[in-house]
Nucleic acid binder design. Structure first.
Length: 455
RNA sequence: CGGGGCGUGGCUCAGCCUGGCUAGAGCGCCUGCUUCGGGAGCAGGAGGUCGGAGGUUCGAAUCCUCUCGCCCCGACCA
């Protein structure tokens, strides 16, 4: 799917199979953005350095990871440009130009782009120096409306994660210590990987009027009063591909939920003699058309090699078609996730494929949900939490989502960090026992939070 | 930035400690024949300024100095 770029630190080359998965994700997300009235735009890659500094918390949060262009055209620039780590500041500038009246609101835009964050430690797909993502930016006339947008887009992310990627997530609010630099509050979807580690799979931020004030984005209300706009921003990235891989893959390689698979089915033709070839290829070509499948007609590769090839790439269904099947009017269907093989009449192939893809999509989600459930535990003391999570590492696995009552306070986040775990989020929906006493401060908090080790 | 590893045909690496003949292997690639229902076999073949610079030496992939880069593990993060 991808390989390290090698020539550029922390970057990767996303190869055709990986990029095709990204394109599927883009399609699913973009359709939903459009369906909720958002429009795509494109903003500059470079941002004047001074822009970043306009929002104090924002610059503080991002400064350490900025790549800065100081020279261009053979000369030193008067003001350096920052390569965007995200575009809130540049959006702020243009919102100020575009918005004067409540009639101009809401502004609902999205950008598909690449960004650069000079992280100290990178990891394929999960944290690369450059990554692809989408960033939605909206401006609203009221805080209520902005908050609705924040939750609406979080729901879109949750929908794609669960119903397309078959990756169950927990929606919730980040603690104040973990929120986006410059936001009033941040919402996230958190997924659990096969090793039990958490992956922040998407975020949606309530920016309040912070950027509105920093960039002077004012509008005149119906009542004639001037006010700053209420903004949101939300994004998911190529990290989702990493999440997909780590949610479903097995020892044999990638497993793609049918809805994420660029190729849902492949037919591997099998023939021994030249005279068998014609008959097999004829049937294979015809069936491929009906099935929307790809025929692997490569010469010089044995059928066995082809089976392994597609298996490793996660193609949901591989059909085997040989002289025997041509003679009997059957075809062999192999399902990727379970590995089960079935001989079916060719006439039923189309229906059987659809049925199998549906079942696989459903089963992968069910399996992932079960894993999430099995690895979520309750804890009622900090000692318990620490005991469960301290030994967990990405390599050793054994990760859990530990549900505990904990107050949203930076000191508490810091205590959790002592054993390298973190508060993933405060779930929007409390599936447990409601209010309880904070395991650190003893104060009453209204629900349990998710504590885990994460990528 | 701290710790560790690596740079030698397209890929993965051996060779380096203890300098010496024509720099090797596996995989991949090319040609031919036989194969083909779970990674085929045989035969022949192409392909390398040993990351870069300097030094020591009769002689350097190997020793020394400098340098560049990448990967992995910790502190920041979608």
């Amino acid at each position: 799917m991808a390989e390290p770029a090698e020539i550029v630190k922390g970057c990767m080359v996303i190869k055709p199979n990986g990029y095709a998965v990204w394109e599927r994700l883009q399609r699913e997300l973009d359709d939903r953005f459009k369906a909720t009235d958002h429009q795509n735009i494109y903003l500059p890659l470079l941002i004047p350095e001074s822009f970043l500094k306009k929002e104090a918390e924002h610059v503080e949060g991002f400064s350490p990871e900025l790549a800065v262009v100081t020279h261009a055209g053979g000369k030193q620039l008067e003001e350096p440009y920052v390569i965007r780590p995200t575009s809130e500041t540049i959006v702020g500038h243009f919102f100020a130009k575009w918005i004067q009246s409540y009639r101009d609101l809401p502004v609902l835009i999205n950008q598909w782009a690449n960004v650069i964050r000079w992280e100290l430690r990178t990891r394929m797909f999960l944290r690369t120096t450059e990554f692809l993502w989408q960033e939605g930016h909206t401006a609203h006339a009221s805080h209520e409306e902005a908050l609705e947008e924040v939750v609406r887009m979080l729901d879109v992310y949750g929908d794609v994660a669960e119903n397309v990627m078959a990756m169950p997530v927990i929606k919730g609010i980040k603690t104040r210590a973990e929120k986006f630099a410059g936001a009033v509050s941040s919402y996230s979807i958190e997924a659990m990987m096969q090793n039990g580690l958490a992956l922040q799979a998407g975020t949606s931020h309530d920016l309040g009027q912070n950027f509105g004030k920093a960039f002077d984005v004012q509008f005149q209300s119906k009542e004639g009063k001037l006010d700053y706009v209420w903004q949101t921003s939300w994004g998911v990235s190529t990290r989702l591909i990493g999440g997909l891989i780590m949610t479903h893959s097995d020892d044999k390689g990638l497993v793609l939920p049918p809805k994420m698979a660029p190729r849902k089915a492949v037919i591997v033709p099998i023939f021994r003699k030249e005279e068998e070839r014609g008959a097999v290829m004829e049937v294979a070509t015809k069936l491929a058309k009906d099935l929307g499948a790809h025929v692997d007609a490569r010469d010089g590769q044995s059928p066995g090699a082809k089976f392994f090839h597609w298996e490793r790439r996660g193609v949901p269904v591989v059909f085997e078609l040989g002289p025997r099947d041509v003679a009997s009017g059957n075809i062999v269907l192999k399902r990727r996730d379970t590995g089960t093989k079935e001989v079916i009449p060719q006439t039923e192939a189309v229906a059987k494929l659809a049925e199998t893809l549906d079942a696989m999509q459903h089963d992968l989600l069910a399996k992932a949900r079960q894993r999430l459930k099995d690895n979520t535990v309750l804890a009622n003391s900090i000692g318990e939490v620490e005991e469960i999570l301290r030994p967990v590492t990405a390599e050793k696995g054994g990760g859990k989502f530990v549900m505990a009552h904990l107050k949203d306070d930076a000191a508490n986040d810091a205590r959790i960090k002592e054993f390298k775990a973190s508060i993933r989020n405060i779930p929007l929906v409390d599936e447990y026992d409601g209010p309880g006493q904070c395991i650190l401060t003893g104060e009453t908090v209204d629900r349990r939070v998710v504590i885990a080790k994460s990528y």
